[in-house]
Write a protein that binds this DNA or RNA. Sequence first.
DNA 1: CGAAACCGACCGACTGGTCGGTTTGCTTTC
DNA 2: GAAAGCAAACCGACCAGTCGGTCGGTTTCG
Lengths: 203, 203
Amino acid sequence: MAVRTPQFSHDALLDAAEAVIHEHGIATLTLDAVAARAGVSKGGLMYHFRSKDLLLEAMVNRIVERWRKDADEAIDRLPKGPGRVARGVLSTCLEKPDCGGAAMRRSGVVLVTALASNPALIKPLREAHTELLKRAEKDGLEPGASATVILALSGLWFERIFGLSEMTPKRRQDLLSSLRTVASSVRTVKRAGRATSSRTRKS
Amino acid sequence: MAVRTPQFSHDALLDAAEAVIHEHGIATLTLDAVAARAGVSKGGLMYHFRSKDLLLEAMVNRIVERWRKDADEAIDRLPKGPGRVARGVLSTCLEKPDCGGAAMRRSGVVLVTALASNPALIKPLREAHTELLKRAEKDGLEPGASATVILALSGLWFERIFGLSEMTPKRRQDLLSSLRTVASSVRTVKRAGRATSSRTRKS
DNA sequence: CGAAACCGACCGACTGGTCGGTTTGCTTTC
DNA sequence: GAAAGCAAACCGACCAGTCGGTCGGTTTCG
């Protein structure tokens, strides 16, 4: 059937598109540029993606899917219990030494850039984000605590993407300890509509 | 000197540019579109902004400047004391009923969109953000606490811009109480490289 | 040989920027 | 006080280049 394995080409073309965006910005993302970068002709590119929009859509979907998978795995790796979601996301975004490394930043830049140029592409990201928030909500922490952690990490993610601030070891450490505190504010008894928190400190 | 009062002020033209971006996306931001929206000819537009890049730059600068001013005023309005910065930002971004209203979202969308299309425009935003973080750092809270609040609110800001999630009254309330807790974790004695926190609860 | 995979010249639409010209209203001159 | 002068403000047809997409053909594998 497949004369040349289409899947390989498919991914390679998306890689090329990401590279172009990452290196020169969305303004230079032309079909010619992607084709050249992938070492293929424009016709070859168009054979796999019938339009630029479809190319962008596939690129965004791939990034979101990878990101969602990473987060899920990090959460599943943790033992069950209150704050599991928050700590899982925390581990993917702040604890691993390489996290927020070149690859993550790159995909973030590409994603945001693509979204800005075509807002309709937001759908998969919205779904992933909503799902994560929903999962975090019933994770046994103080109401709002999981959301705080997730939002702060989202903020950090965007900060990296846009290059808004540097990440020094001290800053990372401070943030980490602050967020860990929040991520361990276990929900206790609810009284008069406001729960009180008991904070467990990790070693 | 000025013989004729400019019929089209810079502000009006920038408003038009923002409107075009907000309503139809950056892809449709052509000089012709801006001119038409402002009720001016292309030549008239070009007379005020000699290139599209300069137009975008002015637009971004104006947005960042307004945002910075809002934040500063909110902080200054608060009594001095630990956590003032965090609480000030909190009040601009989450407490006011209209905050995150149409105007804020609009400017955010425009800003992000413009930045994605021309990363060099990031500079003023980076400076404002860095300045805010620096100010927050020495605000008398636990290390990382101010940053957590600011990052979470940044995350919220981006969430709104991209339309990633709804803001229900309950969610707002939960977030608010969680962030207020963090914003009141006053720094106490530092021990063995890790400070302990004393949290004061507001009425 | 047949179909999938790929090629690249070409087209039409669009866009940023130019430029010669026109309008407008203040100032100067008589 | 009005005619002339002048420069800021504005106009819009036009140009040169770009880009998404097409299409008839060629190559490659099974």
